[in-house]
Simulated scan of single mutants.
Amino acid sequence: MSSLVTLLTSLSTEELGIRLNRARRLAVAYAIAGVLGLLAVACLLTAAIVYIGQIYGPVAAALGVAGALVLLAIIVVVVASLMNAAARRRQKAQRAARQSALVGAAVPLVPLIIKSRILLGLTAAAGSSYLAARYFEIGPFRRERM
């Protein structure tokens, strides 16, 4: 039995080592690709500034490209905040649906709980711990503060 455990442990550590090496190689490759991509974007921006500079002058070209980039950054931030708000609304709706499903599943059990003193005590204990967790914001009721 111990030889089987040893064999399984060695197989899992070998596979973990293989996965870690692969992840390291991918991380290095993605980092290099990211740096090269940023350099390509910088070259494109430089070329745009030089081209526009021939038409409107170098200062106007640089200011125009900088303004366009700031506008693009503002648009990205607004879209990201809208997506976060939509995700929060979806999570809230899912949470409400789960709670209503739990209440719907618990309603038929009420007569059984009321008849049994042990179940009534357990229900009261569970309810009070639920209310305490909500009040003190522990566990899944922890609020994220921004």
Rank of each mutant, 00 (worst) to 15 (best):
R145F: 12
S129P: 01
V50H: 10
K115E: 13
R22Q: 14
A66Y: 08
A40V: 13
A47V: 08
G34F: 00
S10T: 10
A133H: 02
P108W: 12
E144C: 00
L11N: 05
A62S: 11
L122R: 09
A96Q: 15
L112K: 00
T6I: 07
I113A: 07
R145N: 10
P140F: 00
N21S: 10
S81Y: 10
A86W: 02
A133T: 06
I114C: 03
R25Y: 01
A42T: 06
A29S: 13
S116D: 13
V50K: 11
L26R: 12
A126E: 11
I118S: 06
A29Q: 09
I49E: 14
L20Y: 04
T9E: 13
Q99D: 09
E137P: 08
R117C: 00
L71D: 00
R24G: 06
G17I: 00
L36Q: 04
I55C: 02
K115M: 03
L112A: 08
I118R: 01
L109P: 04
P111C: 04
A31Y: 06
E144K: 12
L102V: 10
L72C: 05
L69Y: 03
A60N: 09
M1N: 08
L102S: 14
Q99C: 08
A126P: 00
L11A: 15
R25K: 05
A42W: 09
Y30C: 08
A124H: 03
A93I: 05
L112S: 14
R90A: 09
E144I: 06
T123G: 11
A42D: 05
L16M: 02
L20C: 07
E144W: 08
R89G: 13
Y130N: 13
V59A: 14
L122G: 10
A93D: 07
A132P: 02
F141C: 00
L69R: 04
E14V: 12
A80S: 09
G127K: 07
C43F: 08
R88L: 08
V78M: 07
L39H: 02
N84L: 13
I138Y: 03
L20S: 08
A124W: 01
L36P: 03
P58V: 10
A106Y: 14
C43G: 05
A42F: 11
E15V: 05
L119K: 04
L44S: 14
F141N: 14
V35G: 02
A124Q: 11
R143V: 11
E15A: 10
